[in-house]
Design a protein around this nucleic acid. Structure first.
Lengths: 156, 156
DNA sequence: CAGCATGAAATGATTTATCATCAAAATAGT
DNA sequence: ACTATTTTGATGATAAATCATTTCATGCTG
């Protein structure tokens, strides 16, 4: 079985980093999402749930969109689905009636627990051969690249 | 300016790796794609072009889809767009008339050159503070995770 | 060689994601 | 106090991606 890490070897390191990284990320996402389908939530719908639980209830939609890393308008429709399944609740912020704060329902809390269990099981399976030190190093490198992305994104 | 690397710190390393990695990948993709729009090709359409050039002409659609890391049916439509702009050409493989081989046109070759220039400029800007050694280490870690993903994907 | 399974590309239906725009509410500036 | 600008969430139009199904060529097996 060959994969893309075996190809592209002739390109200079810096020229192939983006391609290989993106391919890997795409596959990671695809596989994780497929594994998580068993939880009844298809595709990206569970992502706002997990971030909501990790960050704590009561964030506004705008804040949550930033946490999840998606556009506000995308989040609107995901929240519609989640609210339709009684996993979250939108409450108007009484101090700023434009904003809505998002809360997990009890059902939502249970769902998040199940998802996190499956997520952790799957990911620790994938990361089996990698040491904590290596993982930390990868995250550290990404964290140092991130400000450039933030800057480029703000500059549009 | 805060980003997600500053949050989620209370989660154990292995439990937040997936989330942080995925968020980063999403942002990377979004920013790169936005930068590359200047080349006239919107979004993912240039990706098959770059892979075609990197791997060499004459691959079948199925092979190219694997290289790009997308579903065959997705590639069909991207190739439709690219062929409509005279950047690629589909030729029926005469030894197996089911398959079609993909070739860059002259116009396509020029487009790839421009895209690669912009891509390399952008990426080297983002990777500015990272050493070759660190980049190699990141790719190495990903390459060691990849077989697990391949396996999970084949197992469905 | 006939018939059936397999395989490549194409097509339809559906899900995510984005951008542009809108309505309602809040804030700023005069 | 009053208009003008900004901000939050929602909606419409559109692009990408996937899965399921179809079409047609190939291969295999009895």
């Amino acid at each position: 079985m060959i994969n893309h890490f075996m190809l592209l070897k002739d390109l200079p390191l810096r020229d192939r980093f983006g391609l290989q990284f993106s391919l890997f990320a795409r596959q990671w996402r695809r596989v994780i999402y497929k594994r998580l389908e068993v939880s009844g939530l298809t595709d990206a719908t569970w992502s706002p749930l997990v971030h909501l639980a990790a960050h704590g209830d009561g964030v506004t939609q705008k804040e949550l969109a930033a946490l999840v890393g998606i556009d506000g308008s995308t989040l609107v429709r995901l929240l519609d689905i989640l609210a339709g399944k009684d996993l979250i609740e939108r409450r108007t912020d009484e101090t700023d009636r434009r904003a809505k704060k998002i809360y997990l329902t009890e059902k939502g809390r249970t769902a998040v627990r199940d998802i996190r269990i499956e997520l952790n099981r799957t990911e620790s399976e994938f990361l089996a051969g990698i040491s904590d030190q290596e993982l930390a190093l990868v995250l550290d490198v990404l964290a140092r690249i991130a400000p450039h992305l933030d800057q480029a994104e703000r500059a549009l």
